[in-house]
């Protein structure tokens, strides 16, 4: 288990969104544009890295009986930090993401990594694990957001990528479009990595 592997695994082989299928709520709700995916992914990555770091540092001091409440306190604190910081310095994006920033608290990727990884691994490996998982989540959100934005609005990151003759498929920006795009993305991911349904 090299450190490189700890970082790498979250991006493709154990991508939280496309492999572990965790964090569906923000993935479906905010990915109406690629830029939203970037912001949501980076916010989640920040929380993931910080909470993994803190939990790994104190992993021997945290009594097992109260570990879950302590993890939640740590995660909720970092979520509040990123919520306040975005509100102060990225106000427009904060308005777009709205309720979904506070909801990072209940994103099961973060508690999952705290419980399954950071609470029993050294600090550096835990940071890399959080970083890898966060980047994997961000990439998946950007791809999903990019597909939906392109089909539903004819743009990617706000830049027009289609000819004037293209009639945007508004359904891709609505909730059904999120399921359609995510389903097709999961299918493509399984095909590419050679995983067949069993």
């Amino acid at each position: 288990m090299s450190l490189w592997h700890e970082f790498n695994k979250g991006i493709v082989s154990r991508n939280p969104l496309l492999r572990l299928v965790l964090g569906m709520c923000p993935a479906l709700a905010v990915t109406t544009a690629a830029a939203n995916g970037v912001a949501m992914g980076l916010a989640a990555t920040f929380v993931l890295v910080c909470s993994n770091f803190v939990i790994a540092v104190f992993r021997k001091a945290i009594p097992p009986a109260v570990r879950i409440p302590i993890f939640i306190v740590v995660i909720a604190s970092f979520v509040t930090v990123i919520d306040l910081v975005m509100n102060a310095f990225a106000h427009e994006m904060h308005k777009v993401l709205g309720l979904f920033v506070p909801l990072i608290v209940v994103n099961c990727i973060i508690l999952g990594r705290a419980e399954a990884y950071a609470s029993r691994n050294p600090v550096l490996a835990s940071i890399l694990d959080g970083l890898g998982m966060g980047i994997g989540f961000t990439l998946a959100l950007v791809v999903l957001g990019g597909i939906r934005e392109m089909l539903g609005n004819g743009t990617i990151f706000g830049v027009s990528v289609v000819t004037a003759a293209y009639e945007p498929a508004i359904i891709m920006l609505l909730p059904p479009g999120a399921f359609l795009a995510l389903g097709l993305l999961l299918g493509a991911m399984n095909k590419l990595t050679g995983v067949e349904g069993s």
């Binding site: 001091a61 945290i62 009594p63 109260v66 409440p69 302590i70 306190v73 740590v74 909720a76 604190s77 509040t80 930090v81 306040l84 910081v85 509100n87 102060a88 310095f89």
Partner: peptide, 20 residues
């Protein structure tokens, strides 16, 4: 341990709130 964790969290958040 729970009290210490909550106190540390509250202190950190108060700092961030003061800045933002």
């Amino acid at each position: 341990s729970l009290a210490v964790a909550c106190f540390a969290a509250a202190f950190g958040l108060a700092l961030v709130n003061a800045v933002t």
